[in-house]
Nucleic acid binder design. Structure first.
Lengths: 194, 194
DNA sequence: GTCTATAATCCGATAGAC
DNA sequence: GTCTATCGGATTATAGAC
């Protein structure tokens, strides 16, 4: 193990909270998974309390999510707008997969830690959607005449997150459609001339 | 209180598990919220264990969800297919709101109770989607020539669930689009002739 | 920084009076 | 069927040796 004990504790806490929730995870469990003697209290040389480590786990995942977001790169420009859009949608699904821990924390603990909800909402819903609107209008400069482009964006975002969460919660996507088929169908819906 | 103690315990357990998770809920908390003396153990005159009451809470919500599903009624037939579809999509969002407790239980505890995942998946994803496919093809008999109707169905289902879960987790929908605008945009996307 | 040991509290569950 | 009382074990957190 080249990682520090502190990092191993954070890793262990994340894994256990994702699986059992904050209330179902004990400090002893965390110590054991981090390679410390269970029940020894060595945990407390690194964190003040169980709530403290949850806060730091959450901040670390939020930081990672923002790094992933910045790592977004635009693919090579393609003549076919539908192909460009499909690629962009697949990238979005990849991004959701990358920030899976953060989404899981939100799904599990948003009732208990309201500030968590607020921060993730700011990072994902607000910034994320604004940025995505920019990308989509760039990928679809001649976006077919929809009366309500903002609502259309909400549809796209909802479809992607719903698809991701179905896989997350159920272990498989709706109607067992794989990501390629899913994004192709969504892109076709958005780009078919009318 | 006209309800039985058993029912009040089930109500209390549901509320607390939704908020704090199974691991974060104590029998004493349940007793207190159910109007029993906290820590008295009166809980155990009605349920054998904490896990037992979770199982019964879950079964009750599953039964309620199936009742809600059966209560689905088709609106009056309308000449305008887009209007019929919009109404249908709004009904779907209502349905998701009605089964909110079940979805919350799934989001919180699917890692800890795998059988829960299996049962909800059967009831919602499998039966629900098959039934929904039927409705959609009825509402859209001349569904514009999509190469992949199954994938299109997945897009619609994902959009609805994603919209619902965004409201559930964040407290508001993506881009602050209200249900009427959302369903109108989705219906327009699906019915615009091309 | 990790360990053993332990204090103080909390929790799931039971016994028995009423 | 609810209460008081409590058992045994788990849990959070600390003290102190190494």
């Amino acid at each position: 193990m080249s990682s520090t004990t502190r990092e191993r504790i954070l890793d262990a806490a994340l894994a256990l909270i994702q699986q059992r929730g904050f209330g179902g995870t004990t400090v002893t469990d965390i110590e054991e998974l981090a390679g410390l003697s269970p029940g020894s209290g060595s945990f407390y040389r690194h964190f003040r309390s169980k709530e403290d480590v949850f806060g730091e786990v959450f901040e670390r995942e939020l930081g990672r999510a923002q790094q992933h977001r910045q790592a977004f790169e635009r693919g090579p420009v393609t003549a076919d707008p539908r192909e460009a859009l499909t690629r962009r949608l697949l990238q979005q699904l990849d991004y959701l997969a990358q920030i899976r821990p953060l989404i899981t924390l939100l799904a599990r603990e948003h009732g208990r830690f309201p500030e968590l909800t607020r921060k993730i909402r700011g990072a994902l819903l607000d910034e994320g959607i604004a940025e995505e609107a920019e990308h989509l209008t760039r990928d679809l400069p001649d976006l077919p005449g929809h009366e309500d482009p903002h609502a259309l964006l909400a549809v796209v975002v909802s479809a992607l997150t719903g698809y991701h969460l179905s896989r997350e919660f159920f272990g498989r996507p709706p109607a067992d459609i794989d990501p390629d088929r899913f994004t192709a169908a969504l892109a076709a819906l958005l780009t078919t001339p009318r």
